[in-house]
Deep mutational scan, measured.
Amino acid sequence: DHWEIRVGDITIHLKDVDEEIIRWVEEALRNGDDLEEIKRWVEEVLR
C-alpha cells in the first residue's frame, strides 16, 4: 500500500502503513502539530 497525506502545501508519502497511523497523522496535521515531530513519530512506529 502507498499513502499520500495532503494538508495544505504539505504532502507526506507513506508506504505499508496501518490506517490507524494515517488517521493519527491526519489528525495531528489538522491540529497544527509540528511536522518534524510527526515524521519522527511515524518513523518510530514503522521501525
Rank of each mutant, 00 (worst) to 15 (best):
V17D: 03
W3I: 05
L35G: 04
R40G: 03
V7R: 05
R40P: 00
E4R: 08
H13K: 10
E37Q: 12
H2N: 09
D18I: 14
T11I: 08
T11G: 03
E19A: 11
R47K: 09
I21W: 09
I12Y: 15
K15S: 05
D34C: 14
E19H: 12
L29G: 00
I22Y: 12
I5E: 01
T11P: 02
N31M: 07
V17L: 09
I22P: 01
E27H: 14
I5F: 13
R23F: 05
E26K: 15
D18M: 14
W24L: 06
E43A: 14
T11N: 03
L35V: 11
W3R: 03
I12F: 15
V7D: 02
I38F: 13
D1E: 11
T11D: 03
E4V: 15
I12M: 10
D1P: 09
H2C: 11
R30Q: 05
I22A: 06
A28C: 02
K39H: 07
L35S: 06
E19C: 05
D18F: 15
E37D: 12
D18L: 14
K39P: 01
I38V: 07
E43R: 13
R47P: 03
R40V: 02
A28M: 11
E26M: 15
E27T: 13
D9I: 11
E37M: 13
H2R: 12
R6S: 03
L29R: 01
D9F: 12
K39C: 05
E36Y: 09
R6Q: 04
D18A: 13
E44F: 13
E4A: 10
I5W: 10
G32C: 09
W3M: 04
G8Y: 06
D34R: 11
I38G: 00
V7F: 11
W3K: 02
T11M: 08
R40N: 05
E20P: 06
V45M: 14
D16F: 14
L35M: 08
E44D: 08
W3S: 03
E26F: 15
R47D: 04
D1G: 14
R30T: 05
E36G: 06
A28V: 08
D16P: 11
E27G: 07
E4C: 14
E4N: 08
H13D: 08
I21E: 01
I22T: 05
D1L: 15
V25W: 02
K39N: 04
V25L: 09
I5R: 02
E26I: 15
G32S: 10
K15E: 06
H13P: 05
K39A: 06
W3P: 01
E4I: 15
E43V: 11
D9E: 09
E44L: 13
W24M: 09
R47N: 10
E4Y: 14
R47Q: 10
W3A: 02
R6E: 04
I10Q: 08
E44P: 00
R40T: 04
D1F: 14
I22F: 13
L46R: 02
L46T: 03
R40F: 03
G8H: 06
R6G: 03
E44I: 11
R30H: 06
I38R: 00
W24S: 03
R40A: 07
E37L: 11
I21Y: 03
R47L: 07
I21G: 01
L35C: 00
W24K: 08
E43P: 00
T11K: 05
E4Q: 12
N31P: 05
E43G: 06
D33F: 13
L35F: 09
V25K: 00
G8N: 06
L46C: 02
E36Q: 08
E26N: 14
I12Q: 02
K39E: 03
L35D: 03
E37R: 12
V25H: 00
H13R: 12
W24D: 01
E26W: 15
E44M: 15
W41Q: 03
K15A: 08
D33N: 12
G8A: 05
E36R: 07
D33G: 11
E37N: 10
R6N: 04
R6M: 06
E36A: 07
R30E: 04
R6W: 04
V42I: 12
I5V: 07
K39V: 11
E20Y: 15
D16T: 11
D34I: 14
H2K: 09
I10Y: 13
H2F: 12
L35A: 06
L14W: 12
E20F: 15
K39L: 12
E26G: 11
I38E: 00
W41V: 09
D18W: 15
G8E: 04
R40C: 00
D9N: 08
I5M: 07
E36C: 03
G32Y: 09
E43T: 11
H13N: 08
W24E: 02
E19M: 14
I21D: 01
R30D: 03
V42Q: 00
V45N: 09
R6A: 02
I21S: 02
I21F: 10
K15I: 11
E26C: 15
W24I: 05
L14D: 01
E19I: 13
N31K: 12
K39Q: 09
I10D: 03
